[in-house]
């Protein structure tokens, strides 16, 4: 299979089966998806629809049962754990719902972490970390530990950490899911800034249609398959999506 250079992410007929106790669950069923460089993609879907599984496969956290995954033109499907780790370090940044900052490190140390473990170091860890914290307006909290930061501050530190090695792809798993409205808005603004100013491709998984509608493109997953692929800026498509949302009981 050849890849198109304009896509940062390509999945080709990807399926993933998970064993839950004695039961085999088909979490993803033949998902094919192309994400262009600089695109901001929202992924929505009800619980158990396969959002997190898709995120894990694209992020190189897991390997598909069948199909292929390309990141920045590189097939990561059969890579070893060691090679996948390198890809994650250099090409992918992660932002999680529960922030997942290392509790014993300060904000600055957390952000510097991926740079310290990069095989080819492109930045000075402390300088780059401070630069990103300033960009995300949490530089005044640089020497505080996670438990000394608010949820919104923690998430902005997490975004800074995800951007540390200047990856082409940012994966966000419910980035506002654990935040109040004001903090959520600040985080979304930060993601938009990153997408626009740094040209970073963003894939964001969320339950929240309002949050998803801030993306350039939204796909909805149902039962492990892509049910819709729309442009939220198109009023007709959004109306259709909202109707579907109500019908499927989404938020």
């Amino acid at each position: 299979m050849s890849t198109n250079g304009q896509y940062v992410v390509q999945t080709v007929d990807v399926s993933k089966d998970l064993a839950l106790g004695q039961v085999m669950v088909h979490a993803l069923r033949g998902v094919t998806l192309n994400v262009k460089a600089g695109e901001f993609l929202g992924v929505i879907g009800p619980s158990g629809s396969g959002k997190s599984t898709l995120l894990g496969l694209i992020g190189g956290l897991d390997t598909p049962t069948t199909g292929q995954v390309f990141i920045d033109g590189e097939d990561i499907t059969n890579l070893t754990e060691r090679e996948l780790t390198r890809i994650r370090n250099e090409k992918i940044g992660f932002v999680f719902q529960f922030f997942n900052l290392v509790p014993t490190l300060t904000a600055l140390q957390n952000v510097a972490l991926p740079i310290r473990f990069a095989r080819h170091r492109k930045f000075d860890p402390t300088g780059r970390a401070m630069e990103l914290l300033t960009l995300l307006e949490v530089d005044d909290r640089a020497n505080h530990r996670p438990n000394q930061l608010s949820g919104g501050q923690q998430q902005r530190v997490a975004i800074a950490r995800a951007l540390a090695n200047n990856p082409p792809l940012l994966m966000c798993d419910e980035p506002t899911g654990n935040l109040d409205t004001v903090s959520g808005a600040l985080v979304m603004q930060a993601l938009h800034d990153v997408n626009e100013e740094m040209g970073t491709t963003i894939i964001m998984v969320t339950h929240d249609m309002d949050i998803a509608s801030q993306a350039h493109r939204v796909i909805s997953l149902v039962d492990g398959r892509i049910a819709d692929d729309i442009d939220p800026r198109s009023a007709a498509q959004m109306t259709a999506m909202n109707l579907l949302r109500e019908e499927r009981g989404l938020e």
Partner: peptide, 10 residues
């Protein structure tokens, strides 16, 4: 798991 996600080798 977070550390490994960030690129820390096993």
């Amino acid at each position: 798991a977070v550390l490994k996600t960030l690129g820390v080798q096993p």
